[in-house]
């Protein structure tokens, strides 16, 4: 996978697609990203291409892609930690390098109780403005689900490897 950002929830607040869609449309975006998003972004299940209905919650285990104003390579997945062999504590110790041990332990505990996480990605052949849209998507998902955003590759969005709140992330 090319660019990926993990989003780790600390509450069970499920994301409903229409809420995420509204947030995205309200999100301040640069021109290219705004053009790419278009007026009516559509979320489709990967493989079946079934359209996600407005009131449908984004729950595990699902893989999605987006139908936007232009062809794009954005993906969204929601997976159970148990299905990806994720040990929350070990994961936070690896990537939560910017956190103090108490906050790391707190996020790890909350995330383990929720038991799943989101990942947004952008593969090869991405459209103009897609990386900005990916960042907006990550921030909106994190805001709607009381989540933290995880940067796993140094330099992505000019951030170090670490775990960031939506506000910290949006300042990048």
């Amino acid at each position: 996978m090319s660019i990926e950002v993990d989003i780790i929830p600390t509450s069970n607040r499920a994301i409903v697609w229409s809420d995420l869609q509204s947030q995205l449309l309200l999100h301040p975006l640069a021109d290219e990203a705004r053009t790419l998003l278009g007026q009516t972004p559509v979320l489709l299940e990967l493989g079946t291409n079934q359209q996600v209905e407005g009131k449908q919650a984004l729950l595990p285990t699902k893989y999605y892609h987006f139908q936007l104003a232009h062809s794009n390579a954005l993906t969204l997945s929601c997976e159970r930690n148990s299905e990806t062999y994720t040990n929350e504590q070990e994961y936070l110790e690896d990537f939560g390098r910017n956190l103090d041990s108490n906050l790391r332990a707190y996020i790890s505990r909350c995330w383990a109780e929720v038991g799943y996480g989101y990942t947004v990605g952008s593969a090869g052949g991405r459209a103009k403005g897609e990386v900005i849209l990916l960042a907006a998507l990550a921030k909106d998902i994190a805001s709607l689900s009381d989540s933290f955003i995880v940067i796993k590759e140094a330099g992505l969005f000019n951030l170090s490897v670490g775990v960031y709140s939506p506000d910290q992330f949006s300042q990048c």
């Binding site: 997945s77 299905e83 994961y91």
Partner: peptide, 18 residues
Amino acid sequence: DVSSLGSLPREIRRNSNQ
């Protein structure tokens, strides 16, 4: 940028699932 071996299976499984 991975510092723990334990992070590898998650990334490989996620790619595999997708």
